[in-house]
């Protein structure tokens, strides 16, 4: 009698465990995804639906919120002609510069034997720990001195300096994984160092280059804080739009806010969907490797 009851109990508890497990798994995914989905949905809702409680899941989708975001009401309609080009120029330039510099430095730090290599590597990595919120006021003074406040150049300089350590760190891990022998053969065959970098290191560390560029791109594109301190009008970037939805007359304007938020996050969601393999690789390399 006893063993039968016991095995039934075991079986039942296994089923309960499975159900609980699957339930909490779903709960977890919902917790992470639902807020994002909800904002996207809200951005397509007509003004009167956005406020309805209980919320309506079926509604007539509209693009009014998007029209309004681009219109003169928010930031004087400068979203498309000013904010977007600023974001694109700053992000793309920063990413390009960071990748070139990080590749050179990453290669030298792994492959050359020179005095001060270890402390230099440590120094570069350690600058990643500097808190931007602690640096942004000093950076503000610096750009004020150089008459660079409210310029794209200031943003590019600062983001390059802030992103380089992580990019170098990621590349170090990838370049270390490339066998030295290939390069030695190439050098024996008369290939220059630059040639080695171009023909061997770059193709073989491509996933690392992709991961490093993605991180640089994402951090620069998403930045709110640096731009908040260092820009006033003509160099403002897209994330600063987040500030303009709190109006004095109407309080928070939900519809346009959801539309603006969706617009800024779409490139990042596309990035995640297209390049998640590299993102996870870069994350675990940058985060796990001591």
């Amino acid at each position: 009698m006893y063993p039968v009851a016991w095995s039934r109990f075991r079986k039942a508890s296994k089923i309960i465990e499975r159900v609980l497990y699957n339930f909490s798994m779903c709960l977890m995914v919902a917790f992470f995804l639902f807020p994002v989905v909800w904002m996207i949905l809200t951005s397509f809702k007509p003004a009167k639906e956005a406020f309805r409680i209980p919320p309506s899941l079926v509604f007539q989708p509209t693009l009014n919120n998007y029209r309004e975001v681009f219109g003169p009401r928010f930031e004087g309609g400068r979203l498309l002609p000013v904010f977007l080009p600023n974001s694109l120029v700053v992000t793309i330039t920063t990413t390009a510069v960071v990748i070139v510099l990080a590749l050179l430095a990453g290669y030298a730090l792994t492959r050359f034997d020179f005095r001060g290599r270890k402390p230099l590597t440590f120094f570069i990595i350690a600058t990643r720990m500097l808190p931007p919120i602690g640096s942004v006021i000093p950076l503000f003074f610096m750009m004020n001195d150089l008459r660079l406040l409210d310029t794209r150049l200031a943003l590019i300089l600062v983001h390059t300096a802030l992103s380089l350590p992580l990019a170098i760190w990621i590349l170090l891990g990838f370049i270390q994984g490339i066998p030295k022998e290939i390069e030695e053969c190439a050098i024996v065959d008369g290939c220059s160092r630059i040639g080695v970098l171009w023909r061997i290191i770059m193709p073989l560390s491509a996933p690392g280059l992709v991961a490093a560029s993605i991180f640089t791109f994402i951090f620069t594109w998403n930045d709110f804080q640096i731009a908040l301190f260092l820009t006033r009008a003509k160099a403002k970037t897209l994330p600063l739009l987040a500030l303009s939805f709190q109006t004095i007359e109407e309080g928070v304007v939900w519809g346009p806010m959801a539309a603006g938020g969706t617009l800024i996050m779409i490139p990042m969601i596309l990035f995640v969907l297209l390049a998640q393999k590299y993102i996870i690789k870069g994350l675990t390399l940058g985060g796990v490797k001591g």
């Binding site: 594109w221 998403n222 709110f224 994330p239 987040a242 996050m265 995640v272 993102i279």
Partner: peptide
Amino acid sequence: IPMMLAPA
């Protein structure tokens, strides 16, 4: 997705 979104 949440961690790649702009914190703003």
